[in-house]
Design a protein around this nucleic acid. Structure first.
Length: 578
RNA sequence: GCCCCUGUAGCUCAGUCAGGAUAGAGCAGAGGUUUCCUAAACCUAAGGUCGCAGGUUCAAGUCCUGCCAGGGGUACCA
């Protein structure tokens, strides 16, 4: 890390002083800077528990001793003990001055670290089937995958964002047979329907009709067989329909901001796992049972044996994933491979990684399943097969319409086009923030009503805070420029913002290391609140003192920069006006 | 049955990995603030046997054991 951030400087200095005084060694992670429960106790503090064992003294007496030594520590103008805690009062002037220098210099890079430098990580996310549009579950996956990718990249890793499209199989053939029977040669263009919805409608039609027509499934299986034999006609239709779906997906991905460095297609990888499995049989690691399936004994996991290849020699899900994973490690020199996949598949991934290890792949321990909880509607689980579909596109449309209403209600000076782009930005920030503020492992109770609310801990609230900061700088003209004199700052509201800005780099790293964007979401909410409180209590442009205006503008500038950086990592585009 | 996850205020959630300050927010409901840079805001009060019961510890929402409730999984589906 080339640039030392204020809080790191402070922690390092404190650690040195403690080591020198007691003539001991401490670990880098021993000094954990915490917030105090109450500003009267100081701005930040550390618990002295970690010293207690080494020094054989009570944490409280250590804290008192340290406080009485009156060290000189950067950005700190007062040390005091409170029980087992050593608390510090920060010096607003030097802290803000230093933050201003660092954040101005780093601008969009403030918060980035080189923690993961030189290491390559792959994030597989989205992973849709090519027979229907994406639904609310995919939205969570997409949003989570993007945010985690951004966070890891911000922490210095090389990140490969990849998608694995399940573009072959019986589900695709169902849409195909349905289109052949009832499509009458129509197309997304002729019907003016988004391609993935067009194909999805035929899939739904199949499921409905198959309930009464028992022969339909047989026909779909026939199509699958013909596809596997490379039947020209079938392959041509398959390509055509998949392209329709991909056109639709591209639109959805563009709207959400999803990007991929590489797309794996199951049709290209699905046979590769078979060789791996057969080699495992040859090496005696795997075996064939009496009915002809290749199986692996999982006694070591206290699980039932698992089939890895069907008796007719065809691949199952596990076979394909074995193949794709080996492919991934062949394509990239990976230090970490992450799968963003719902927790329904926890067992699948546990077995997948274990089988890879048993097959002797040394990199098996670099595989990580980032699982996330279900998304529920008040009515129950989302299922596209049961007609109760909340697809990604209509959800975004719905949110768009609502934020548009809110904008119009407030009757700002905005032309129609700006209203549309603003409504879209607010809608997407609402959706993304709502998903990311919840810990990935938890289920989300997606109440459409709550998600549409624009108050509280939401994306629009953060956008509002950002827009107000932008507004001040826009309207300030000359008054907000020039060398700020930060000795004029130091009220509690200014200090609160400064402390949060100083903590930001740690929040980013912490979120990245725990694959948990909700930590960053919390920080975004906290600084948004601090900004609004500051706006409420203090004026920037109307202070009557040009020097104070300049100083506060400096703080506004770096707050805006840092909040914007945080939002961008969440995949949210900050709004200058709303 | 067995395995995994979840259970914190009326509702939605932080905090559990790494035990430490009086368990924090938001929403809803109650009350208040606007000649002033965006009131999509801000403030105040109220709201809790941290699912239950044991245990470990100087200290447990956090660790251990058992139980209860909800969800997921337990396919030659993906």
């Amino acid at each position: 890390m080339k640039n030392i951030h204020p809080l790191e400087e402070l922690a390092a200095s404190l650690r040195n002083k403690i080591e020198d005084h007691y003539n001991i060694k401490t670990g880098e992670s021993d000094i954990v800077i915490e917030d105090t429960p109450n500003p009267e106790l100081g701005d930040i503090g550390i618990g002295c528990f970690f010293l207690s064992k080494k020094l054989k003294k009570s944490p409280a007496s250590i804290a008192e001793e340290l406080a009485n030594l009156s060290f000189t520590i950067p950005y700190v103008n007062n040390l005091r003990s409170a029980g087992p805690y050593l608390n510090m009062t920060l010096d607003a002037e030097s802290l803000i001055k230093s933050l201003f220098a660092v954040i101005s210099a780093q601008s969009n890079d403030y918060g980035l670290s080189d923690y993961g430098a030189g290491r390559q990580v792959m994030i597989e996310y989205s992973s849709p089937n090519s027979n229907k549009p994406q639904h609310l579950g995919h939205v969570r996956n997409n949003v989570l995958g993007m945010a985690v990718s951004n966070l890891l990249e911000a922490s210095g890793y090389n990140v490969a964002r990849v998608n694995l499209i399940n573009d072959r199989g019986i589900h695709v053939c169902k849409s195909m047979i349905s289109y052949l029977k009832w499509g009458n040669g129509t197309s997304p263009e002729s019907e003016n329907i988004k391609g993935d919805h067009f194909v999805g409608d035929f899939y739904v039609m199949f499921e409905k009709k198959a309930k009464n027509e028992s022969g339909l499934l047989e026909e779909a299986r026939g199509i699958l067989k013909r596809w596997e034999n490379g039947d020209n006609e079938v392959v041509k239709l398959w390509k055509k329909m998949n392209d329709w779906v991909y056109e639709g997906f591209d639109e959805t991905y563009n709207r959400l901001g999803c990007i991929f460095d590489k797309v794996y297609l199951e049709s290209e990888t699905y046979t590769k796992g078979r060789d791996i499995v057969l080699r495992g049989v040859g090496e005696g690691i795997l075996s064939k049972n009496k009915t002809g399936e290749v199986i692996i004994n999982l006694d070591d996991l206290e699980l039932e044996e698992k089939v890895l290849l069907r008796s007719d020699g065809t691949s199952i899900y596990m076979t394909q994933d074995l193949g794709t994973t080996v492919e991934k490690f062949n394509d990239y020199k990976l230090d970490k491979a992450v799968w963003v996949v719902a927790s329904e598949q926890n067992l699948h991934f546990k077995i997948l990684f274990h089988v890879l290890e048993r097959l002797g792949y040394k990199w098996a321990d670099k595989c990580y399943h980032l699982n996330y909880g279900m998304v529920y509607l008040p009515e129950g689980k989302l299922k596209s097969r049961e007609g109760r579909t909340v697809d990604a596109d209509s959800l975004m449309d719905e949110l768009h319409e609502l934020s548009k209403k809110e904008i119009i209600k407030r009757s700002r000076d905005m032309d129609d086009e700006t209203i549309e782009t603003t409504a879209e930005a607010i809608a997407l920030s609402a959706l993304k923030y709502f998903i990311l503020k919840v810990h990935p492992r938890k289920d989300i109770n997606f109440s459409p009503e709550d998600s549409l609310s624009l108050e509280g801990s939401t994306g629009p609230f953060a956008q509002y805070s950002y827009a107000r900061l932008s507004s001040i700088l826009r309207k300030g003209g000359e008054a907000v420029h020039g060398e700020p004199d930060f000795s004029l700052l130091g009220n509690p509201e200014e200090k609160k913002i400064a402390v949060l800005l100083a903590q930001y780099p740690h929040v980013v790293l912490d979120s990245a290391n725990s694959y948990n964007p909700s930590r960053l979401a919390l920080w975004i909410f906290e600084i948004s609140r601090a900004i609004n409180k500051f706006h409420h209590d203090h004026s920037v442009l109307n202070t009557g003192d040009p020097e104070l205006t300049k100083a506060r503008s400096g703080l506004v500038r770096i707050a805006r920069q840092t909040l914007g950086n945080g939002l961008r990592l969440m995949g949210i585009k900050p709004l200058e006006k709303m």
